[in-house]
């Protein structure tokens, strides 16, 4: 069974004003098949955690470890991490002018599998996943994320999740900006991926509404760069009612 372990993770970012410590000792263990929800106020470092797992060059790990089945993820380049089975659905997916979704997906699939996918089944798989996510087939010929609405970008992230079949996925506010229908469609996509591949998920969100469709095994409260509390699904409801106030130190507010 696969496991993703984050141990005492400290992360800095270089800003114009100098070095800033953002993550201040994060511990988290995600087993294959588990869903962990991470909730926390704006600026608490949730995206920083997501980017650090994926290996974004802006974030410097100053202490701690990330291990995937005992292997040191921090030694891997961004693409090596993806090929090792990590996936990040981004909060703000970027546009890639001139690169079609079709070309992009095939290139990524080939990179991850190490061989080009069989033409016939691949085209079928892509079509099926797109139709599951209610993405019009003309998206295949459009440039990656170019002119996509916020919701379409999120669907495109989940499309990749379904097709690239990672072992662990970090979903950074995939629910933000989605209307109810889109939220359902995207959640179904995530659940389908769970059923098909049994991946582990780290679900970053501000709202409990997505947790009605994607049921977390664990909920973590993220405050000021570390996990302030963890519990089961009931913790999410409590957060919704009470907010984060009781976790915040007076100075931070």
């Amino acid at each position: 069974m696969s496991v993703l372990e984050i141990k005492n993770l400290h992360v800095n970012v270089e800003t114009d004003q100098g070095t800033r410590e953002i993550l201040r000792g994060v511990d988290l263990v995600i087993n294959e098949g588990e869903i962990h929800a991470v909730m926390g106020p704006n600026g608490s470092g949730k995206s920083t955690l997501a980017y650090t797992i994926a290996g974004h060059p802006k974030y410097t790990v100053v202490e701690g470890e990330i291990l995937l089945d005992g292997e040191n993820v921090l030694d891997m380049t961004v693409d090596e991490r993806a090929r090792a089975g990590l996936f990040l659905a981004m909060q703000y997916p970027v546009e890639i002018p001139g690169v079609t979704v079709t070309n992009f997906l095939r290139t990524a699939k080939t990179a991850i599998d190490g061989t080009a996918p069989s033409v016939r089944t691949w085209v079928k798989d892509v079509r099926q996943s797109m139709s599951n996510l209610r993405m019009d087939s003309n998206f295949a010929e459009r440039n990656v994320n170019e002119g996509f609405s916020g919701g379409e970008k999120k669907r495109n992230e989940i499309l990749q999740l379904e097709l690239l079949k990672p072992r662990f996925a970090v979903l950074d506010e995939t629910d933000s900006g989605l209307d109810v229908d889109a939220l359902k469609i995207v959640s179904e996509g995530v659940n389908r991926a769970m059923e098909n591949t049994g991946l582990g998920i780290l679900l970053i969100t501000h709202y409990t509404r997505i947790l009605r469709y994607i049921h977390p095994d664990f909920v973590h409260v993220f405050v000021a760069g570390r996990i302030a509390e963890q519990g089961g699904p009931e913790l999410a409801d409590r957060l919704e009612e009470e907010g984060y106030d009781r976790y915040l130190e007076p100075v931070a507010k």
Binding site: A54, G55, H56, P57, T77, V78, D79, R81, A82, R83, F87, L88, M90, P93, V94, E95, I96, F104, T107, A108, A111, I112, Q160, L164
Partner: peptide, 15 residues
């Protein structure tokens, strides 16, 4: 744009 590069590499595509 390094963000484009990151996006593609995060999908397994070598630099």
């Amino acid at each position: 744009d390094d963000e484009q590069l990151f996006y593609l590499m995060a999908r397994g595509i070598p630099e």
